[in-house]
Design a protein around this nucleic acid. Structure first.
Lengths: 206, 206, 206, 206
DNA sequence: GATGAATGAGGATTCATTCAT
DNA sequence: TATGAATGAATCCTCATTCAT
């Protein structure tokens, strides 16, 4: 008899995809395990065979999303390019990613809320943002070194860029019809770059 | 006989303050009505006498916060001042407000999450952000008119500023030890202003 | 100062009328004291000033209805008339009473159910039925004595008549559109009288 | 591995029997789900696994009783017999059924009361009474055709018989010690038959 | 007499999780 | 592996009744 093929990963995918749909639609707390059972087409026992608890499913979903996201973040933007150009490329890539996970937005709100009381989720999000900043920082650093950017504080400036992008996503969740996401991202980048590039004014403040 | 003094506002405050403490600490979904009962020092019946449901309580809390916040947002920043200066003052005022509601941050995550499925909460937050933008826009408009700022798109630029500030708050929730809130806000403002002020470079791109 | 007029009875009426409306519409168990408060236009305290409990109100309503009903039952149907004629008059009077309390029918169901566990209500209903039978019995007795009726068992025959009328009311509650109440009552009386009057057949059986 | 035997019908029976005992004893509104849990020997969850709500349980009980009753009502009383004889047999069968459901009488009061506000219960009872009438009507019809009965209105006469029997049950609930159920049923039948059979008197009235 | 805010025991229902099969 | 019936602690909310004013 041929060894039974391992369907573990397949089943887990099946469950996580079903759970993602359910969570997206009803929110973590309003979603019922039975909803996931129904949506997945599996049985209650099967769900619990692959995942210890509802919370474990939530964490697994987060892991997948962030693993996937992380894998796609361009870590190796060629430093041959100018810093501004690199940031542009990075923002461009971010926009593309954003559009891919757009339908999952509701999940992120739940993750944010849950991260306050679930250390695992908190760590995952933190790591993700960290990674995000770790890409921006060297670019800014390069920009300053080459004189392309003003001698700003690298970490704080990176944080400003990251915050501006994250904030745009948040605002967009409330004004999806008003905000043209791509355009807004580019406008924001434009202003930020203008604020970073070196010119005779070192600071607007006296 | 002295007329019985109306204590209903007092009671509502009592309940909302207790609920705020409970929700902040345990999150809306993990909070139990009994926690609020215990924390408020009132009875179960009294809570339900003043509020129809647990959900009604969180809506009332949001209303109070936003009513209070809204009342304190400086709408009348003197237009005698330069646009950059006005933005500075606005950010300064925002920082001060932020510090006042800092302990309530966990609640905002709950608000964000619940706003996806509770239209009342959604509207309240939307209105608040709207108000926020409506203060920034005229300042930018003035800056452009006087030539102090580049001829940027007013609405989109206001959104950039708003998003940057909101995003900073979000990031700060994850890196409270790393981010010096006040400094970060000011750095961000500095970069944004640099990006808005008029100078020979119209755009860093191309 | 003129002595304050006693409004007790007036208030009690006010409460009982409101309660009757509420109970009729929602049933005893689904009705809330607050419904009665609202319907009566009085305060919670006032209700409890005049009645000790919800159950007391129910009993009071029953008492009023049965007192009123009882008072209207024709006890002194002239025995100068034939027994059949007397029964006819009695049924005629019953029909008229029925129409008066028709809107209260739902209450009777509640009374019936409650009488199983509330001795006071049970006694009241029992007394009422007893009274009913006590009117019919002498008529039948008279009919037998005068030879107008067959020598049936008086008590059991009275019960048959009473049961037929009560049963008609019950059926009518389920088939209000099919049953013409007045006609049905008269048909039933007709058959019963036919069954009671003396004729050569003493019994249809054997 | 032997397939797990389907115990769902068994469980439902178990629950409905326990609930019947509880409802009979305490009445629907006074009965607590915990009483049913205790009486059934199952868990709270099991009860709710099989029935959606307390209301659903009483509906199911009614359904079973009426289904069983309906199945036992003799629809095929041989028309070779005389109409009077058929009615006798029918009443005899009814008496036997009555004795079987005698302990459930208290439930019927709850059914009657709830039928006012629960369409499902209302329909069930209506259907049952309808069925009852549909058995009596053809017998009367036959009696009239053969000249055994007077030319009475079939539907109304059937209603009279049905009402008399139902009414007897109702009265008996109040005078269980006074009424000898079987005898009373037979007396009633006797009078009704006497009222239906043809003889020279067409009507007792004038 | 009258008010209505306050009480709190009680109750129906939910739902994550378990486990015998 | 997989099933789904069974568990029962937990939870929100109700509502008859009370009582200070």
């Amino acid at each position: 008899m041929a060894p039974k093929p391992d369907v573990s990963e397949e089943r887990k995918d099946q469950i996580l995809e079903a759970a993602t749909r359910v969570f997206t639609q009803r929110g973590f707390d309003d979603a019922r395990m039975d909803d996931i059972v129904a949506e997945s087409g599996l049985s209650k026992g099967a769900i619990y065979w692959y995942f210890d608890s509802k919370e474990a499913i939530i964490v697994a979903i987060l892991d997948r999303i962030f693993y996937w996201e992380t894998a796609h973040i361009q870590k190796n933007i060629s430093s041959d390019l100018g810093a501004a150009k690199q940031l542009e490329l990075f923002v461009q890539a971010s926009i593309e990613e954003m559009h891919k996970i757009e339908p999952l937005m509701p999940l992120f709100f739940d993750f944010w809320t849950r991260s306050l009381r679930n250390p695992t989720i908190n760590q995952a999000i933190k790591r993700y943002y960290q990674l995000f900043l770790e890409i921006i920082e060297p670019i800014i650093q390069q920009g300053i070194s080459t004189g392309e950017f003003r001698p700003v504080d690298v970490k704080q400036s990176a944080m400003t860029i990251g915050a501006a992008l994250e904030g745009t996503i948040l605002m967009w969740a409330y004004f999806p019809k008003i905000i043209d996401f791509d355009k807004q991202f580019r406008i924001t980048l434009d202003i930020l770059l203008q604020g970073l590039v070196a010119n005779e004014l070192t600071s607007v403040r006296d």
